[in-house]
Design a protein around this nucleic acid. Structure first.
Lengths: 291, 291
DNA sequence: GCGAACGTTGCGACAAGCGCAACTTTCGCA
DNA sequence: TGCGAAAGTTGCGCTTGTCGCAACGTTCGC
């Protein structure tokens, strides 16, 4: 679905994929974390190996491991990215970029990630007009596709649609929550789950994995609404920990220990691949290089 | 005619083009020397500038000059290439590449460039079987296209056909020569010129530029044949200085000073772009990185 | 003032690289 | 011992980036 990218920035994607894989030693893990298909990861590594003329990984039946060449190349990759980062870090002139950048963010992202992300951007480029829009995560990707937003800060699904590229900025746990001062409905429901979106999907997977579906009491739209219902005692809710910690009703909420814990939940930046060549988008994107 | 290349090696092409342009400050010069079309050079620079968000060159009516950002990026580019070169220079295992590599070279190249080029390759990869074929420069590119050779070492035209990429390894002057012990036919002919090929084209351009065509006495096939005819007193010849210096009959040849001097003559390495991903070809290609 | 030189841009074509989905192999569990 | 899941690879169609050619706008020299 995606086409070839561009030179300077895209070459680094190969190095990043390699470095992540060199650490995880797990194609699937890296594929998920870096939001590329397993096929792309496999072929990216194959391309590297072909161009270098060496195998970088030993694929044993019992997992993969770095070859000697792989370790050597890892050192190169680290240094190359550091060099690039050093170049990008020396911000040259603060006020040379102008224009408008439309950012779409979930409410959660607004409260948590966005300040850390946009503060340095604003410092570097004070002339840029920032438009900020909010909504749920599902809408974020649609807005990007439609061109109504330039960047999105939201939960990122492992597989991004079409021409979008994402970068995970942080990972938060999903936690099960109940009202603190009400009888505990427990881990068998009833549940209060988001109507749709990544959290809902993760919650469904968790429920399925446990084998005991449990009743769904309400399906509110939005995390804050969900927490409000939970605080009212409607049932057991599932939210990202990050949301809970920034919620206005967190004092009335208790976290239930769960085993197995629901899978972690990546939150990050997402842009249209083709937009990486726009100076404004590239500038913001490059700010996240070290995350 | 060419498609996009591949990551690691191809990204460096952009940096190399940039560095050459940063030194020459002349799009046409760099375009010729690096064997890319002016359009490609322009757009490569434009791409860099877009991705970086800065102009790298000031295009004044009186030529181009580096901007402050351009100078900064030049430092990065130099370091990035040095880093890559350092990685490639540490040859890991000497004997890890095997197979066969068919090299096509002109006679001149065999005598001059080839030893310097192939000696380190052979040291690094003794297991590789080298097939060496000789012929004239025009045939070299045809052989490459037909797949009958993997690499060519020959004079390289400024514009390479189709899917070939070249890298200039050295530049030699064209010199005008006569028999030392015969009456000097002088700069107005008759001339002894190669029947075809790059030298003939350059000689024709030189003749046209002087405005006095002069007669063509013989059109031998091959530089050695040409020098033999010149030594026999058939007329004034045009050959690359490199050929003259390695000729068996050089003692019987005298060089005529010419003004303006014929244009210099680039000799280099040429491969199919798509072959850069073949380990053997890539290994040889990377050996020329610092030339 | 006309022509050459220089850099840029429209255009058609080619092929690199992506995701999807099917495949192979291996491991876990009954 | 056999079936199912998991992990990595590969065939395929499609998108899209980049190339060279050729036409263009501008500037300088004669």
């Amino acid at each position: 679905m995606k086409g070839p990218g561009h030179r300077v920035l895209d070459d680094q994607r190969g190095l990043r994929l390699f470095l992540h894989l060199a650490q995880s030693l797990n194609f699937g893990r890296t594929s998920l974390d870096c939001h590329v298909s397993p096929a792309t990861l496999t072929r990216t590594v194959q391309r590297l190996e072909t161009e270098l003329g060496h195998r970088l990984f030993d694929r044993g039946p019992r997992g993969v491991s770095l070859t000697a060449e792989g370790r050597r190349f890892r050192e190169y990759a680290v240094q190359a990215l550091e060099l690039w980062q050093a170049y990008r870090d020396e911000r040259p002139d603060p006020a040379d970029l102008t224009g408008r950048l439309t950012v779409f963010a979930t409410v959660t992202a607004c409260q948590t990630l966005l300040p850390d992300l946009l503060a340095p951007f604003r410092t570097a480029h004070p002339q840029v007009r920032l438009d900020l829009r909010t909504g749920d995560a599902a809408a974020a990707l649609a807005r990007l596709d439609e061109g109504e937003a330039d960047v999105a800060v939201a939960g990122i699904p492992a597989r991004l649609p079409g021409p979008l590229v994402g970068r995970t900025l942080t990972v938060t746990d999903l936690v099960l929550v109940t009202a603190r001062d009400r009888p505990d409905p427990g881990l068998d429901g009833p549940f209060v789950l988001p109507q749709r979106g990544l959290v809902r999907e993760a919650a469904d997977r968790w429920l399925r994995a446990r084998g005991r579906p449990g009743a769904v009491a309400c399906e509110p739209d939005g995390h804050e609404a969900l927490l409000a219902l939970v605080a009212l005692g409607c049932g057991t809710g599932v939210v990202p920990r990050l949301v809970l910690e920034h919620s206005a009703v967190r004092d009335r909420i208790a976290v239930l220990p769960a085993d197995p814990a629901p899978e972690p939940f990546p939150i990050g930046l997402c842009v249209r691949r083709s937009d990486l060549r726009r100076p404004l988008v590239a500038a913001l994107w490059s700010l996240t290089a070290h995350w």
